[in-house]
Amino acid sequence: MINGYRIGEGMLAWLFHRISGVAIWAFVVLHVFDIYLAGSNPGLYNDLLGFYASPFGRILETLLGAGLLYHALNGARIIIMDFWPVMTRYNRIMWYICWVIFVAVGLPVAYVILKPIWGA
């Protein structure tokens, strides 16, 4: 329940998809610019890289990766239903499968991204 509304899974799936999509968009705006700097101003790019490799940077990258993974899995679910309408029947099951894959793939990847923070 949020503000008295019952939040269904369909709505959550939509909300997460929209938030993750806009967040990745914002990163891509920054990212295409920073890779452009790698060509035009390598010194400045290398300074920025320090942030990517920092503990705080790694936490943000983990969140970015989580958003990307969720958006990709849920996007695939949408595409499957758009082009193969009978699958709409399995809408809910596919949504759960997305989360199983999200956790199974996401946790090990998050571990690898974050482990330099504690020096592993």
Binding site: A38, G65, L68, A72, I79, D82, I113
Partner: peptide, 30 residues
């Protein structure tokens, strides 16, 4: 939908390359 499918492969593999194959700390302009 077409670009979404392409990104499923391209964006996810890019992300894995720049985090699992090579750590960001190694990715200098050089």
């Amino acid at each position: 939908r077409l670009t979404g499918l392409a990104l499923f492969v391209l964006a996810l593999s890019h992300f894995l390359i720049v985090h699992l194959v090579v750590d960001p700390s190694q990715q200098s302009a050089d």
